[in-house]
Design a protein around this nucleic acid. Structure first.
Length: 568
RNA sequence: GCGCCUGUAGCUCAACUGGAUAGAGCAACGGCCUUCUAAGCCGUAGGCUACAGGUUCGAUUCCUGUCAGGCGCACCA
């Protein structure tokens, strides 16, 4: 059992036996004090109880110190400040974490697979297959991949999924764009209409398809037939490109799910029929949207879903004016499909521009699966791409958007990932290309990686010196008494707790900020204490410390998908 | 007009769901390499946490209002 839980239980046990009848047991919250002098854990329960017991928090805390049956790992507990209970652990008991980290290796901080948890479907990126990924997708990609790692580390069975929006009008536009490029390649002069995809990659796709399907053959086809031929080929080409872009970021998915397959299988139509049967839909007319001028608004009777019954503002259409299903209808079927595939928990990572979409999807999913609050939607705020402090204007139409690939090539996958993972998703952030390049050698990511390389260098040095590393149990941990050493030990103890918190709150950025603090602790230790000294026992103790630190750095970086280099 | 997110050092961001002296990285200034990696360390400077109220032992955190920025507001995806 984790120390934190032992402490919690000990305190709860005491309170249960001593609190007067009817007094509610407060939540026992143990925190890691920022100040080293405040012990390994702090508890504020005395202050919470002050009002109920009509006693000063200091007095209550004092009673806790004396009365609680503290676990053996506790060295002492004392009252501090306004009534904090500061708990200090046995130094040797704490330092046992070093052996665990070294022995468990990559598994340190991880939890075994838990069958009691719902299976998780994590959907992210899902960029439209109409072109290469642009930098806007990058943040969601990094966050999603890291979150997947974090959840898996805490025992979740998780699948990473990419939803391919390969249905709808945009695909027709894509096919038409490819066809125009084909005609251009064939010698025609084309005036490209506004809605088309102008990017250079469309030419490549056109060329690729022409290799298999000669122009004359395509030209002879009926326009609709031709489009049906070109569209899937163009989508496939774009998806190959997108997979390549993701691979450049070291991101892979377990499953790619096709929207058109959903339509082809009749899932959408079946869902609508089912909803009609269950009384969730009706024919009605929506009022014009408020606050925004809709020039072409016409009151039209549509098939509407009663999302208002589950907390949405207005009911939402399932069919367009022409009778074909809306994207929303397909999306309900999609989330229903995830449920049918056995995912009791669905997490979607969307861009902030989809914020208005959350309520209706959650309402609909609740209606068709009885899962309340699903999908859990993480809204990732926008990234402002800057170059030398000025915004980079991005327009798909003008073909001026910056691709993910360009950014990765410029800045490097490790730096890109770390950069996007040090911030909470709720905060919009600026990403300056020039700054990222210029600072590429002073980036936080290198600070952490350097700490790892430094540990590796020390261990190499020890190896070259012919030093035989003792097994952890043979090392005298009491020799690690310096503040810098204890700081490292404390942080390693906190690592599993940090991971658990990151998973619980869906906040992978915690790993990155923790790593920066941990790396700082290592660098400080390095400058203060020499590892290999004349005293062989001290050397062994510090080498064990370095081995453990290197391992935990490596584990943390792995969570973020960032390399842990042996040399820099 | 309504909804969601945000406002913290010159810049980019943290602060462990309400805790103790608000911290890192860049940028600035001053020190530290003939011993394990100077992509590092130590020090200095930099803050009315947008503003005004409220809740309580205690507020960057929770509530209300104001201001500022971002995103969204049928039949696109």
């Amino acid at each position: 059992m984790v120390v934190k839980q032992q402490l919690e239980m000990a305190i709860r046990h005491y309170l249960q036996n001593t609190l007067p009848e009817g007094a509610a047991l407060p939540e026992i919250h143990l925190s890691r004090p920022k100040q080293q002098g405040h012990g390994d854990y702090a508890c504020n329960v005395a202050m919470q109880l002050a009002r109920v017991l009509r006693k000063s928090p200091q007095v209550i805390a004092q009673q806790l110190v004396a009365g609680v049956d503290w676990p053996a790992v506790v060295a002492k507990a004392e009252v501090a400040g306004p009534g904090f209970l500061n708990i200090f652990l046995q130094q040797a008991a704490e330092a046992a974490v070093l052996g665990r980290a070294v022995m468990q290796g990559a598994d340190y901080g991880r939890v075994a697979l838990r069958d009691d948890l719902p299976r998780v479907n994590l959907e992210f990126v899902s960029a439209n297959p109409t072109g290469p990924m642009h930098v806007g997708h990058c943040r969601g990609a990094c966050v999603g991949d890291a979150l997947g790692n974090v959840l898996i580390s805490q025992g979740y069975r998780l699948q990473r999924e990419y939803y391919i929006n390969d249905a709808g009008a945009q695909i027709g536009v894509l096919a038409e764009s490819v066809w125009l490029r084909m005609r251009e390649l064939n010698g025609a002069t084309i005036d490209f209409p506004d809605g088309c995809y102008p990017g250079e990659y469309v030419v490549g796709i056109a060329q690729g398809i022409l290799l298999e399907h000669p122009f004359a053959v395509l030209d002879a086809l009926d326009a609709t037939v031709r489009q049906q031929l070109i569209a899937p080929l163009a989508v496939a080409a774009n998806m190959a490109m997108i997979r390549g872009d993701l691979a450049a970021l070291n991101i892979t998915f377990d499953h790619y799910f096709s929207e058109s397959a959903l339509h082809d299988a009749g899932s959408v139509a079946r869902l609508i029929a089912q909803l009609q049967h269950d009384g969730w839909v009706y024919r009605g007319t929506l009022p014009p949207p408020k606050g925004k001028e809709v020039v072409d608004y016409q009151p039209v009777e549509q098939l509407l879903f009663r999302t208002t019954k589950c907390g949405d503002e207005v009911d939402r259409p399932l069919e367009k004016q022409d009778g074909t299903p809306t994207y929303f209808a397909a999306d309900i079927a999609y989330h229903r499909d995830k449920f049918d595939r056995g995912f009791g928990r669905q997490i979607d990572i969307w861009g902030a521009d989809h914020g208005g979409y959350v309520a209706r999807v959650q309402a609909a999913v609740q209606a068709v699966t009885d899962l309340v609050g699903q999908p859990e939607v993480m809204l990732v705020q926008m990234v402002n791409l800057l170059r030398n402090g000025t915004p980079v204007k991005m327009s798909k139409r003008a073909g001026t958007f910056v691709t993910l690939r360009e950014v990765v090539d410029e800045v490097g996958a490790d730096a890109v990932r770390f950069n996007f993972l040090t911030r909470r998703v709720e905060s919009q952030l600026d990403f300056d290309l020039e700054a990222a390049k210029k600072q590429s050698e002073e980036n936080p990511v290198y600070y952490v990686q350097y700490a790892h390389a430094r540990c590796a260098a020390i261990l190499r040095k020890a190896d070259e010196a012919g030093l035989l590393l003792l097994p952890p149990e043979a090392v005298d941990l009491a020799l690690l008494g310096a503040p810098e050493e204890q700081r490292l030990v404390t942080m390693m103890l906190a690592y599993p707790e940090m991971l658990a918190t990151a998973a619980e709150r869906l906040e992978p950025y915690r790993v990155a900020t923790w790593l920066m603090a941990f790396a700082a602790a290592l660098h400080r230790f390095y400058h203060k204490q020499r590892v290999m000294v004349d005293d062989a026992e001290v050397s062994q103790a510090r080498l064990l410390l370095v081995r453990a630190v290197k391992q935990v750095l490596s584990n943390g970086l792995a969570m973020l998908g960032v390399r842990a280099p042996e040399r820099m």
